[in-house]
């Protein structure tokens, strides 16, 4: 009997699938590699340095908060702080002063994540909270975009040329002019698709983001629902506006290829913790994000609205979860 009692008693099921939090988190990190490489290619060493600093800051703050505020063992291994750091970096202009990036990391990890209880409990996407905090606190630094390809223009890190994003150009141009006046000022769609434009580090290259997104879809880390409805609804809404007045509104393809909408739809809005649980809920969430993005871009004060759109929809997630229940097997008659 004695040896038998060593057997483990636990409830069913006694086997487990291959999914784990760690695998999901590191899967996202892998999916971010193409965007990261593109940003290093276009913005050079400063992009690499900024990413390293942001990631390191997030990991350090995660560790310190766990160790000294929560007084428990460190949980860096789950990879979530690493992702927050990476995503935050990819949402910043490459030439942002490093100390600002560190402040953003503190807000992301300390306020947006741990003030709510850590991984799984935060209602808002930590990286986006960090970014929006920086945008509001340091509007000039956060909107002085280094021009892509500055690396090959012979400039050194310190005096890289800055310029507005295509969205910024459009916003300014449409205040007093029409779409035709913008001709020549904007990069071509092909340049936008591959990332040859001004913007945040990770948002410039649609193709790199899509590669990461397809990888995550194959690994079943994300589902198609949020990216497709986000981009689809933005495309349709922008399309309606454009058809109503093509001289006053940018065309829908422009909206999909510029700004943070790709990065937002694939990486930020799909964050599991801050998106709805059911597929039905994800559809609602995606549509909300897409429509809000175009609303802010075309009618709001900011040229870019992805961060705000996602954060606003994050706030609706508990409500969406409550009403977008899954399809039941069968309801009683």
């Amino acid at each position: 009997m004695a040896e038998n009692t060593k057997w483990i008693i636990s409830g069913a099921p006694h086997i487990h699938g291959s999914e784990s939090v760690k695998k999901i988190m590191w899967g996202v990190v892998i999916a971010l590699i193409p965007s990261f490489l593109v940003s290093v290619y276009f913005f050079g060493l400063q992009a690499l340095v900024l990413t390293l600093v942001t990631v390191a800051a997030c990991l350090v703050f995660e560790f310190l908060i766990n160790r000294f505020l929560f007084k428990r063992a460190c949980c860096l291994g789950d990879g979530s702080a690493m992702i927050t750091g990476l995503l935050l970096a990819l949402n910043l202009p490459a030439n942002l002063p490093l100390w600002m990036a560190i402040v953003g990391s503190l807000i992301a990890i300390g306020v947006a994540k741990w003030a709510y209880g850590g991984l799984g409990n935060n209602p808002f996407n930590p990286a986006l909270v960090g970014r929006v905090f920086l945008l509001i606190s340091f509007p000039v630094a956060m909107t002085s975009w280094p021009c892509a390809r500055a690396l090959f223009g012979g400039h050194t890190l310190t005096d890289a040329v800055t310029g507005p994003t295509p969205l910024g150009i459009a916003k300014e141009g449409l205040k007093n002019g029409t779409v035709s006046d913008l001709a020549g000022q904007l990069p071509s769609y092909a340049e936008m698709f591959f990332g040859n434009m001004a913007g945040s580090m990770g948002e410039i290259s649609a193709i790199a983001i899509l590669i990461g997104g397809i990888y995550m879809l194959c690994r079943k880390i994300i589902t198609w629902h949020i990216p497709v409805t986000f981009l689809g609804s933005a495309f349709i809404f922008a399309g309606i506006l454009w058809m109503a007045n093509p001289e006053q509104f940018m065309d829908p393809v422009f909206h999909l290829l510029t700004g943070g909408i790709m990065l937002g739809a694939v990486f930020m809005a799909t964050d599991m913790v801050t998106s709805p649980m059911t597929n039905k809920g994800k559809l609602i969430f995606g549509v909300g994000c897409g429509v809000l993005t175009i609303l802010i871009r075309t009618f709001g004060a900011y040229p870019e609205g992805v961060s705000f759109a996602i954060l606003i929809m994050n706030a609706f997630v508990p409500l969406i979860n409550r009403y977008a229940t899954p399809k039941r097997f069968a309801v009683a008659k």
Partner: peptide
């Protein structure tokens, strides 16, 4: 080696339990 439960993490609200439930319930809830 396969008798123990795996290390516990906080719920990351991925919704995989909802997707897996053959009765269409929300196990997390």
């Amino acid at each position: 080696e396969s008798a123990h439960r795996l290390p516990l993490y906080p719920c990351i609200r991925c919704g995989k339990c909802v997707e897996a439930c053959p009765m269409g319930l929300e196990p997390y809830l």
